[in-house]
C-alpha cells in the first residue's frame, strides 16, 4: 500500500499516469454533461410552482456543489502538503483554486438569475448567497497570496496555511450569516431548493452532479500535470522527456 502510494506521489509516475487517465475522465464527463443538460432542459417536467424557471437548478446546484467540494479538496491537499511536506499535494491545491473560483462565480451568477424571477430581486442577503460570496473572496485571497511570492516553496506553504485558516473560518461565517439573517425579519423567502423534487426531475440533477465531479477530476489532473512540470523543470526525467524535441541545436 505504502510503496504504491509513494510511487503514485513520485512526479514522473504521476505525470505519466495522469496523462493516461485524463482523457478517460474528460470525454465521459462531457458526454454525461450533455445528457444531463438534455434531461434537465427537455425531459424533466416543469415545476408546478416555479414553472420552467426551476430548471436553473441544473446549473446552480452542480456549480454550488463544486465550489465547496473543490475548496475541501484544496484545503485537505494543503494540510497534507504542510504536514507531510509532499510537493504533489501542494500542486493539487494550486491547481484546484482557479477551477473552484470559476464555479463559485457561476454559482453566484446562476443564484442571482434564479432569484430575480422567484424572489423579485437579483440579490438577497441570504446567508447561503453571502457565504458563497465570501468563499469567492477567499479563493481570490488564496490565489493572490500564491501569486505574490516568487519562491514556489514559500508560496505553497503560505497559501496552504491560508487555506487551512479558511476552513475554520467558513463554517463560522456560514452560521453567523444564519444567525444574522434570522434577526432581520426580511421578506420570507422560499429557499432555492426545488420543493418535493420528483424522480424525473431528480435524475438529471444527480447525473449533472456526477458529471461535474468527473469534469473537475479531468481538469485537476491536467492542471496538476502542468504544476508538476513547473516544479520539476531541472530534474532528469523532464530533460529526458523534452530534451529531444528541442532539437540538437
Amino acid at each position: 500500500m505504502w510503496t504504491w502510494f509513494h510511487k503514485l506521489a513520485s512526479p514522473p509516475h504521476f505525470y505519466r499516469l495522469a496523462g493516461l487517465i485524463g482523457p478517460w475522465l474528460l470525454w465521459p464527463s462531457l458526454l454525461l454533461l450533455a445528457v444531463g443538460t438534455y434531461g434537465g432542459l427537455v425531459l424533466a417536467p416543469a415545476d408546478y410552482q416555479q414553472g420552467d424557471g426551476f430548471r436553473i437548478i441544473y446549473v446552480h446546484v452542480p456549480s454550488a456543489y463544486l465550489s465547496t467540494t473543490i475548496y475541501a479538496v484544496l484545503a485537505v491537499a494543503s494540510a497534507i502538503g504542510l504536514i507531510w511536506r509532499i510537493k504533489l499535494a501542494h500542486a493539487v491545491a494550486a491547481a484546484a483554486a482557479p477551477i473552484g473560483a470559476s464555479f463559485t462565480a457561476v454559482a453566484l451568477i446562476s443564484g442571482a438569475l434564479w432569484g430575480k424571477p422567484m424572489w423579485g430581486t437579483y440579490w438577497e442577503w441570504d446567508p447561503r448567497l453571502t457565504s458563497e460570496l465570501i468563499l469567492l473572496f477567499i479563493y481570490f485571497g488564496y490565489m493572490s497570496l500564491r501569486a505574490s511570492f516568487e519562491d514556489l516553496n514559500q508560496a505553497d506553504r503560505a497559501s496552504g496555511l491560508l487555506a487551512v485558516i479558511g476552513v475554520v473560518n467558513l463554517p463560522i461565517i456560514h452560521y453567523s450569516g444564519m444567525w444574522w439573517s434570522s434577526l432581520h425579519q426580511g421578506p420570507s423567502l422560499k429557499t432555492l431548493d426545488a420543493p418535493s423534487i420528483s424522480g424525473d426531475m431528480l435524475w438529471p440533477l444527480l447525473l449533472l452532479i456526477a458529471a461535474s465531479t468527473l469534469f473537475f477530476g479531468a481538469l485537476l489532473l491536467s492542471r496538476v500535470r502542468a504544476e508538476v512540470l513547473d516544479r520539476e523543470q531541472n530534474s532528469r526525467w523532464i530533460q529526458d522527456l523534452f530534451g529531444d524535441s528541442a532539437g540538437a541545436g
Binding site: 424557471g53 456549480s63 451568477i109 491536467s222
Partner: peptide
C-alpha cells in the same frame, strides 16, 4: 421556457461558458 427564457438561458449560458473556459485555460496552462 414558460416566460423565464432570459433567466434560464443566461444561467445555462454562463455555465457552459465556464466549462469551455476551464477546458481552454487548462490546455493553455499545459
Amino acid at each position: 421556457m414558460g416566460g423565464y427564457a432570459e433567466f434560464v438561458w443566461s444561467a445555462f449560458g454562463v455555465w457552459f461558458a465556464c466549462v469551455i473556459f476551464n477546458i481552454v485555460s487548462a490546455r493553455r496552462r499545459m
